[in-house]
Simulated scan of single mutants.
Amino acid sequence: MIEDPFEQVAFLGFDVFGTVVDWRSSVTRLAEPFLRRHGVHVDPYRFADEWRALYQPAMERVRSGERPWVKLDVLNRENLETVLSRHGVDVGQIPETELIDLNLAWERLDPWPDSVEGLTRLKRRFAIGPISNGHMAGMMKLARFGGLPWDIIVGAEVAKSYKPQPETYLKSAAAVGLPPERIAMVAAHNEDLAAARALGFRTVFVRRPREHGPAQTSDLEPRSNWDVIAGSLLEVAEVLGCG
C-alpha cells in the first residue's frame, strides 16, 4: 500500500499573490481610472507590472538588514510613489486620499476562478491559511473582499521577515502549533516551495501560467518533484481527497 505523504499534514499554508488571487488583472482594473483621471499616459497593465516589479527589491532591503522591518503596505506605498514619479507625476499634487485608495488595490484582488471553491474543499480535511508576505490586516481585508475562507492568517508579519527567509516559514509553523513536517506549502512559485521543502514542509505546486500576463516566462512548470503538481486548487483538492 502506498503511503499518503499528506496523512500527517494538518495545515496548508498558501502563497496568496499569484497563487490564490490574480493581482495583475485586479491592479490594472483598479489603477485604470486613477491613471486616466490624472492624465498618466501609461498602459494600465504596464503600470501594474512596474509596480509589482519593485516588490522583491523592496523586500530584499528588509531581508538584507539594510532597513528595519516594515509591513508590506508601507513598501507598496513607497513603490507606488516611485512608479508614479517615473511617469512624470508630481505625487505631492495628488490628494492623499487617492493615493491611499490606490494602494489599497492590493486588498481588493480578485481570486482566480477556482480559488474559493478549491479552498473550501481543502478546508474539509485541513486547516488553511496564508503564509504570505502580505501583512495581517491586508490579508484579512483581502479575504473579506474575495470570500477566502481562511482559518488563520500567518506569514511575514507574524515572523517579522519576508519569504523565502526560513523564519517566515518556521515562525508561521510555530504560530499554528505544528512542526514543519505537518504543514504543506501551496504556491505557484518554485522558489517558495524550495525554501519550504528545505525546512521539512510538504509541497504543492499550482500552475498559474498567466499570473504575469500572456508573455509570462517564469514558473510555467515545476522545477522539482513537488509532492503535488496541479493546474488549479480544485485539482489539488481532488488529489488530496477533498471531494
Rank of each mutant, 00 (worst) to 15 (best):
P111S: 07
L99I: 14
R77C: 09
P113W: 09
P95N: 13
D219H: 13
P164E: 05
V62K: 00
R182C: 13
S132L: 08
E60G: 07
K123C: 04
V42K: 07
G134L: 11
F34R: 09
Q216H: 13
G231P: 04
E78Y: 13
S172H: 08
H189M: 15
I2S: 14
G13A: 11
L220V: 15
R24K: 12
L240K: 06
P113K: 06
G65H: 15
P68D: 07
K141G: 01
T203D: 00
A48I: 00
K171Q: 12
N79K: 08
A137C: 07
W112C: 00
V40D: 02
R63Y: 12
I100V: 15
E98A: 10
E181C: 15
N103L: 09
H41V: 15
I152M: 09
N133K: 00
R37P: 12
W23L: 02
H189A: 12
G231Q: 11
S161Y: 03
N79I: 11
F47N: 02
A215K: 14
V42G: 03
Y55S: 05
C242G: 13
L178G: 14
D219W: 11
A194N: 02
R67E: 07
L178R: 14
M139N: 00
S64W: 06
G88F: 10
F34N: 01
F47G: 01
H135I: 10
M59Y: 05
L142A: 04
V20S: 03
L170H: 04
K71M: 07
T203W: 06
S172E: 05
R46D: 05
R63A: 10
H41F: 14
P5W: 13
H135N: 10
L240Q: 10
R197P: 02
E60Y: 14
L104M: 13
P209G: 08
M1N: 13
R125P: 10
L122Q: 03
S172K: 06
S218P: 03
A215G: 12
V116Y: 08
A237T: 12
V236Y: 09
V176E: 09
L199I: 07
L148A: 01
L109D: 03
V176R: 04
R208W: 05
E50H: 11
V89R: 06
L54K: 04
M136E: 08
F47E: 00
G18Q: 06
T168H: 06
A215L: 13
R61G: 04
A230I: 11
E117C: 08
A188L: 07
V186C: 04
Q216Y: 13
E107H: 12
I183N: 00
P68T: 06
V91K: 15
E7N: 12
W51L: 00
L84C: 02
